[in-house]
Amino acid sequence: MAQPGTIDPIHQFEIQKLVPINLFGFDMSFTNSALWMVIAVSVTTFVMVYGSASRSIVPGRLQSLAEMAYEFVANTLTGVTGREGMKFFPFVFSLFMFVFAANMLGMIPGSFTTTSHIIVTAAFAMLVITVVLVAGIVGHGSHFFGLFVPSGVPGWLLPFMVLIEVVSFVSRPISLSLRLFGNMLAGHIALKVFGAFVAALLGAGAAGILAPLPLLLAVALTALEFLVAFLQAYVFTILTCVYLNDALHPGH
């Protein structure tokens, strides 16, 4: 725990048990992380299921929202992979909506950002890479490993190139998970620290006159964090599409 008088931006990432559950000796409590995951899924399901319930040709607001989300992800996927990529559409869509909802819900004051834990983002990254590998091997067999052998490379350079390509492939899930985790973590730490600055300045008597400055910065940072929440979800999704494209059309 932090000493009194210091700023502790790490405490907000603590997992707190709300409903202790013990399954087979494992601690599967319903934590604040689980709560916000459930909320993210509920919000997404509400928008998509109730948005598509009315089926009118001229859509209302909720239906417009659902259709916009659908078309946005569909265009992203087909823009990268072409029409055959649509068989991965439910997966990519669920991924995008979950990450986007989780990021956005974390911006609510007092909430918990589920994607700010490395285990969550790493699980997503491993899921994506597993899907890519399975899709590649099932679809193309051993020809899929032609991905690691770029064309037009002289024979003596080939072992090094293959090694570099393999390392580059293995670094994909690492970078995917770390990018999302790092962005969420850094954003919330910065927000917490600037908020604490405002409070500290207000409590410091004469220096209270400077308190609006970190407040302005915190406002600007909050706006930036909303953008980053969307952008990181979008980048995660489009990189997933790029890796899926490698599985669907292997070889350079």
Partner: peptide, 23 residues
Amino acid sequence: FIGAALAEGLGIFCFVVALVLLF
């Protein structure tokens, strides 16, 4: 934006190294 996010990612990795060292 995709390119910027990829480049920014490497900066994030540095930050994560700093955090790992600290905590």
